[in-house]
Design a binder for these strands. Structure first.
Lengths: 356, 356
DNA sequence: GTTAGCACTCTGACCCATAGAGTGCTAACG
DNA sequence: CGTTAGCACTCTATGGGTCAGAGTGCTAAC
C-alpha cells in the first residue's frame, strides 16, 4: 500500500514513476511493446497486472506512454523519455574499468587535439550502441604559435601557420616583388614574424603589423604575409564549426526500428547536412551544459526518430568543442548520458593541457 | 536480315549484343525486369517480341541474363554487366560542359593535395548516382620540404614536418638535454636540418645525418631530431593507404535494391572496414589501370550487390592515389567509367604540379 | 530465320477466417 | 478506496485460397 507521494518532478506518485521506468527499461532492451503481465513477471512489483494496467492507462493519459493499437503493450512517448531523463539527473557514472580503458586509449594517441576529437567519437560509438559525434575544439580566438615560409619558386611560396590550438593552416602565396624571393629572404621574413607575432590573435597581430620594422624589403614582405595571416585567422575564428566527425553509424543501422531503410535515410541526410549539425553544435557549445534532444523535440522532421545527446567541452573564452551521441530514441539514457559526460570531462582535461 | 557477325568479344552476334545492351540500359533506368515486348516497343529492333525472346533465351544460357522467375522479364547477371563493360572499352568521354565545371571547382579550392582528394570523391558522387571514393596521393618515398621546431617548455618541443607531397606531420619531442633548450637553440637546429635535409627521403636523410657537423650541442640535438624525422618518414612510407574518404553514400541508399536496409548494412560495414578498402586500393594503385569489380566478382560476400570502379592517379615512382565510385551493380557503366577516367586524369595533372 | 498464337507458370493483390495477445471494464473483495 | 479476478472486446499477424495479369516457352505456320 504505497502512499501517494508527490515527486518533485511532477504530479506522479513514486509507484507510477517506478512503472514508467520499468516500461522504458523493458522497451529499451526488447524493442517490443511492453505488456502489463510482463512488467509484473519481470520487475517484482508486488501488484497484479490489472493494477499495473490501471497505472499504465494513467501514464498514457499523462502523455508519457502510447499504444501502437488497442491490443498491444505500451511504448514510451518522447515525453515519457523526457520525464525519465529528468528523473535521473544524478547520472550514473561510467564504471571505473571503462574509464581507465578510455584514458589508456587517449594516452596512446599523439598529443594533438586533432586526433582527440576523432577518438572521442569512436570511443562514444563503441561504448553506447549509437553513433558518436565530435567536433574539434575551436578557439574563439586562435593564437599564432609558429609561422613558416617555404619557397616554391621565384614568385611563389607556401605559408604554414601553426596555431597554439593544434591546428595547422596552409596557404599558397604569390610574391608581388620585382626581384625573385629566395628561401633566405623568406627565412628572414619568417623570423621577424615569429618574433613579433608569437601568441598573438588576429586582432592583436593586426596592431603589431602596422608598427613593424626591419630591413626595408623584409619588412614589406612581412607586412603582406602578415596581412594574409590575419585574414586566415579571422576566417578560422569566424567559422562556426570547422568539422563534425561521426563514427559508428553502423550501430544505428542495426537498431530494428530502422529496418526499413527509409527512416535511416532521413537520419543520414540530416547528418550529412553539416550546416544543421553545426548550428546545433554551436548552440550546445554556448550553453555550457549537456543537452538532450529526444525525437520530436527536434525541430527537424528527419530527426524525429532519434535522440541526440551533446555535451560541450573545453574552456569558454579559450576553446570549445562538442562531443555526443546520436541513436534511436529507444536508447539506454543512463548509460549514454554517463558516457558522454565522462568523455566531455576527459576532453576538458586535454584542452587544459594545451593552455597549461 | 542481319548476317551473323562474330564480334571480337566473344561468340555473340551483333544483334544479340545490341539486345543485351538494350536490356542493361532498360534495367538500369527502371530497376525492373525487362520484358521482350518492352524492348521491341522502346528500342525499335525491327523484329517481333518472339524473336527477341529467342535471343533472350540464348543470352540466358550464355549466363549473361537471368530470370527472377518463369513469368518475369530478364535481368542482367554480373557476367552480363562484365560483357557489356568490356564491349565499351572505348569509354564515353565526359561532356565538355561538365569537364569545365569540374575544373572550375578544383580551381576554387586551395592548392593543397589534401583538399583535392576529398573534392574528387564529392565530385564523383555528384556526377554518378553512386558513392565517391578517394585516397590522398601517397608518395612511395616522401620528401622533406621543411622542418620546424617550436618550443613548448624547457624540456619539450613540437616538431612540424612539411612534405613536398603536401602532407604535414606533427610530433611532440622530449629533449634529453642537461640544460634547458630554448627557441633560439631550436632555430639553429631547424636551420641546420633544413639546410641539409631539403628534398631528402628517409633513406637519403639517414645517410646525411651520420656526417652532420656544426656546433656541438646543436649537432647533437639535430642528430636526435633527425632520427625522429627519419622514423616518421619511414612510418609514412610504409603505411599502405593513409585514409579512404567517401562521400555520397546517400546516393547508394536511395537505390531501390537497398530498400531493405540489410544489404545496405553489409555495404556500409565493408566500407567501414578500412583494411579491406586499403588492400583493394593498394592493388589498383599498383596496376596503373582502371579496375572494375562487379558484384560477385568481389571476393567479399558483403560486396556482392555493388560494383566498384577504381582508377589510380598520380605518377608511379612518385605519388599515387586512387579515385573511384561504389554503386549498385545496376549502375550506368558508361557514365561512371567516363567520369572516373576524367577525374583520375585531372588528378594526374594536379599531382604533376606538385613535382613541376 | 521469323512470327503469330496459345498454353503455361508464377507473382502479387485481395479476401477471409482464425489464433493469440493484451487491453479495458465491471463487479467483487479487503 | 485501492486492488484484483474475470471476461468481453479489439486488433494484429498468419495462412490459405482465389484471381487477374504479366511474361515466358513452345509449336506450327510462313
Amino acid at each position: 500500500m504505497a502512499r501517494r507521494v508527490r515527486s518533485p518532478l511532477g504530479p506522479l506518485d513514486l509507484r507510477s514513476q517506478a512503472i514508467l521506468r520499468a516500461v522504458i527499461e523493458e522497451y529499451v532492451s526488447t524493442a517490443q511493446p511492453v505488456a502489463s503481465q510482463a512488467l509484473v513477471d519481470r520487475y517484482g512489483l508486488g501488484v497484479s497486472s490489472a493494477t499495473v494496467r490501471n497505472i499504465l492507462a494513467e501514464l498514457e493519459t499523462a502523455g508519457l506512454l502510447t499504444h501502437p493499437h488497442t491490443s498491444a503493450g505500451r511504448v514510451p512517448t518522447d515525453a515519457g523519455y523526457r520525464f525519465f531523463v529528468e528523473s535521473i539527473a544524478d547520472a550514473v557514472p561510467l564504471p571505473a574499468v571503462e574509464q581507465l580503458m578510455i584514458r589508456h586509449q587517449f594516452g596512446q594517441v599523439e598529443f594533438a587535439s586533432e586526433h582527440w576529437f576523432r577518438l572521442a567519437a569512436t570511443t562514444l560509438a563503441g561504448l553506447t550502441r549509437a553513433a558518436g559525434i565530435a567536433t574539434p575544439a575551436k578557439p574563439n580566438a586562435a593564437h599564432i604559435r609558429r609561422v613558416d615560409l617555404v619557397s616554391v619558386n621565384e614568385r611563389m611560396a607556401s605559408l604554414i601557420l601553426v596555431l597554439r590550438e593544434g591546428a595547422i593552416k596552409q596557404a599558397a602565396l604569390t610574391m608581388d616583388e620585382p626581384e625573385a624571393v629566395d628561401q633566405g629572404t623568406l627565412n628572414a621574413v619568417a623570423g621577424l614574424l615569429n618574433e613579433r607575432l608569437l601568441d598573438r590573435t588576429a586582432t592583436s597581430a593586426e596592431q603589431i603589423l602596422v608598427k613593424l620594422d626591419g630591413a626595408e624589403r623584409t619588412q614589406r614582405i612581412a607586412q603582406r604575409v602578415g596581412e594574409r595571416i590575419v585574414r586566415i585567422l579571422r576566417d578560422y575564428d569566424a567559422a562556426a564549426v570547422e568539422e563534425v566527425f561521426s563514427d559508428g553509424l553502423l550501430n544505428v543501422m542495426e537498431a530494428p526500428e530502422f529496418a526499413q531503410s527509409d527512416k535511416l535515410r532521413q537520419v543520414f541526410s540530416a547528418l550529412e547536412n553539416r550546416a544543421y549539425l553545426g548550428e546545433l553544435v554551436g548552440s550546445v557549445a554556448g550553453s555550457g551544459r549537456i543537452r538532450i534532444v529526444i525525437g520530436a523535440e527536434n525541430p527537424r522532421e528527419e530527426m524525429h526518430d532519434v535522440t541526440l545527446i551533446l555535451a560541450p567541452y573545453g574552456r569558454p573564452g579559450r576553446a570549445i568543442g562538442v562531443v555526443g551521441v546520436l541513436g534511436p530514441t529507444r536508447m539506454s539514457y543512463p548509460n549514454a548520458i554517463g558516457t558522454v559526460s565522462f568523455v566531455s570531462g576527459l576532453m576538458d582535461e586535454l584542452v587544459d593541457h594545451l593552455y597549461a
